[in-house]
Design a protein around this nucleic acid. Structure first.
Lengths: 300, 300
DNA sequence: TCTAGCTATAGAGCTTTTTTATCGGCCCGT
DNA sequence: ACGGGCCGATAAAAAAGCTCTATAGCTAGA
C-alpha cells in the first residue's frame, strides 16, 4: 500500500471528485483513478460508489476513512517531529553530569540553552562520573559532562580544565602571607568532600605524592557543605575553582596559592556513545552551544 | 514515502539487524537497505547508526519511531475495520423505520441480527416514512424500512405486505356476526391514529372510496394507545396486522372481516440510496437476514 | 440531440524497485 | 595470526509499477 494511495483516497473522499482531487494533488486524473483502484483492489472492497456526479464513499470507505486520516496525520507529525529535532526547535535532551558540573557549571549553560531552544525539554541526571558513564552506556542519557575517562565505547570532547584551588576563610593567616608551602597546608585542618568521588582520590594522591599526610581532616559529602565549613573557620579545603567562583568574587572565601606544589586539576569532558552516529537535533545544538562558550567562565 | 519503507524502518528498529528484518519481511537484504536509505534520504536525516553489530537508532530515529508505529497501526487497524465490516463481525448499522415497523416488526428482526452479529452496534431512528426517507437521503441512516415510496435516488426491496385489519374488543357484537358490512363499520365509533401518518390518509381514502363517512372518530398519535382504546371499548380500529398480532393471539382483541370491502394494505419495503454501490458489511448482512425471513411472520 | 462533465481504459515511456552477486570491514575462535 | 562468519553497502541487470497522453463510455441538462 502506498501512502500516495491513501492520500488520494482522502482527497477524493473530501472532494467527491477525482478530477478536482487529481488537480489538487498535481497529478492527472487517470493517475489518481489508478491509485484508487489499486487501493480498492488491495483492500478487497470498493471504497467509492461511482455516480454521474462523482465519487461517493461506500460504507466500507466510510469505515476506512478515519484510519486513513490517522495514518496520514501520523506521518505528517513524524516529519514535523524530525524537523523539530533537526532544528532543535523542540524535542528532548537528557544530560548526565558529575555533581560539581551539575551544580556549578550546568545552570548557566542550561539557562542559555533554554533561552535559545525554549521548546526543548531538558532533563539532568547527576551522579559520580563512573555512574553517569554507565547511564550513558545504558542510553539513559544522551550526553554526559564528567571528568575525562577512558572507555572504548565513548568519544570525549574536552570541555574545560577544572582546577582545584585552596580556599581559606577571609582573615586567615594564609591570606596575608606571601608564600604558603605544602608543609604549611599539611599542618592545617583539611576539609574534604565525598569519599566516594574522584575528587577524594585525586586530592589524596596529590598529598601523598608530595610526601604530606594531613592529619586533621573533616569529610563532608557535598561541596556546598565543605564551603560552609571553611567559612566557619573549621578548616581549609581544596575545592573546584568553578565551585568557589562565587565566594571568591564576594570575598567570603579567599584563594591561596601553594608555591611549592604543582597545580592540581582534572579535565572535564563531555562524552557521548561512539555508536550513535553524528550528533543531531538537540544533542548537536547543545554541543554547539558548549563549543561557543567557555563553561568554566560561566561558573557561578 | 512508501508504507513499506516505514514498515522496514520499524522492523529494523526492532531487530537491530537488516538481514534478519529483511528475512522476516520476505525481501532480500539489499532491498531493505535500499528502503531505509530512501526513507532516510526523504526525511533528510539518518535514522540509524551503522555499527559492526548492526543497526542502532539515532536520536532522530528514536524521535520518528512513535510516529512510524502510529502510522502502521492506523493502516493495520483500518484493514481490520474493513475486514470486520465485510464480515459484519463488527461495525455499525443505522436503520430508519416507520413507527409500525420499528415497534412491531423490528424488535424480532434485531434480536436475530444481534444474535448473529453480536459485535455490531445497531441504531434505529423512527419516524414517518417521508421523514425517514429524508434521513436516508441525508445519509443519517443506511437503510430504512418504510412503506413503498417513489423516489429516483433510492432503490426498494419489497419486505412484506402489511394488511390493515379491523379489530374490535372481545365480546363486541361484530365478533359474533357472520357478516359485517362497511355500512356497519361506519356506524361505529372509529379510532384512528396519527393524523400526520400515511395510515391516516390511507384509511380516510379507503372509507371515502366506499362512500362511507365515519362520523364519530377518535384520534390517537400512536398505535399502542389506539389498541388500548379499542380494548376499553371506546371504539373499533383499522390497525396494521403486525401491530395487533400479539393481541389477536392472546384474544384480547378480535379481528373482524368486512365482507363488502376490498382488503386494505400497503407495501412495506426496505430502501437504500441508489448511489451507494453494492451493499457491503453490516448493511449486506442485514439485508441477507431480511431475505431469509418473513418479517411479517415474526411480528410480536 | 448536442454538449459538458464525470470516471474508466489503453498503451507508451520512464522511473523505481527488486534481485543476484559481490565487496569490504570487523569480530572471534582456532 | 589467520580464516570463517556475520554485518551492511554497492553494482548492474531485470522486473515491476507508475504516470502520462489520448480517448472511450456514460449521463444529465440545455
Amino acid at each position: 500500500m502506498l501512502l500516495a494511495q491513501v492520500e488520494g483516497f482522502l482527497e477524493v473522499a473530501r472532494r467527491g471528485n477525482v478530477s478536482r482531487a487529481a488537480e489538487a494533488m498535481f497529478v492527472t486524473q487517470p493517475t489518481l483513478t489508478a491509485r484508487l483502484h489499486a487501493l480498492e483492489r488491495e483492500l478487497g472492497e470498493p471504497l467509492f460508489a461511482r455516480t454521474r456526479r462523482g465519487m461517493r464513499l461506500t460504507d466500507a470507505g466510510r469505515a476506512f476513512l478515519p484510519y486513513a486520516e490517522r495514518a496520514i496525520r501520523a506521518v505528517r507529525d513524524g516529519r514535523q517531529a524530525l524537523a523539530d529535532a533537526r532544528s532543535a526547535s523542540a524535542g528532548r535532551l537528557v544530560l548526565g553530569a558529575a555533581p560539581a558540573v551539575s551544580t556549578y557549571v550546568l545552570p548557566a549553560i542550561l539557562q542559555r540553552f533554554a533561552a535559545a531552544y525554549p521548546r526543548v525539554e531538558v532533563a539532568v541526571r547527576t551522579g559520580h562520573s563512573e555512574d553517569v558513564l554507565q547511564m550513558l552506556l545504558r542510553e539513559e542519557v544522551q550526553l554526559a559532562m564528567v571528568r575525562a575517562m577512558r572507555n572504548p565505547d565513548i568519544e570525549s570532547i574536552p570541555l574545560y580544565e577544572e582546577g582545584l584551588v585552596l580556599v581559606v576563610p577571609p582573615g586567615h593567616p594564609f591570606a596575608q602571607r606571601s608564600r604558603v608551602g605544602i608543609a604549611d597546608v599539611a599542618s592545617e585542618r583539611l576539609i574534604f568532600f565525598d569519599r566516594t568521588s574522584s575528587y577524594y582520590e585525586l586530592t589524596q594522591t596529590f598529598f601523598l605524592s608530595l610526601g604530606v599526610t594531613p592529619r586533621e581532616v573533616m569529610e563532608l559529602d557535598n561541596i556546598e557543605s565543605a564551603k560552609k565549613m571553611v567559612q566557619r573557620r573549621l578548616g581549609i579545603a581544596l575545592l573546584p575553582r568553578t565551585a568557589v567562583a562565587g565566594e571568591l568574587a564576594a570575598k567570603t572565601l579567599t584563594q591561596v596559592t601553594v608555591t611549592d606544589a604543582p597545580a592540581l586539576s582534572q579535565k572535564i569532558v563531555v562524552i557521548r556513545r561512539r555508536d550513535q552516529g553524528r550528533p543531531s537535533g538537540t544533542v548537536a545544538a547543545f554541543l554547539n552551544l558548549l563549543k561557543e562558550s567557555d563553561p568554566a567562565a560561566v561558573a557561578s
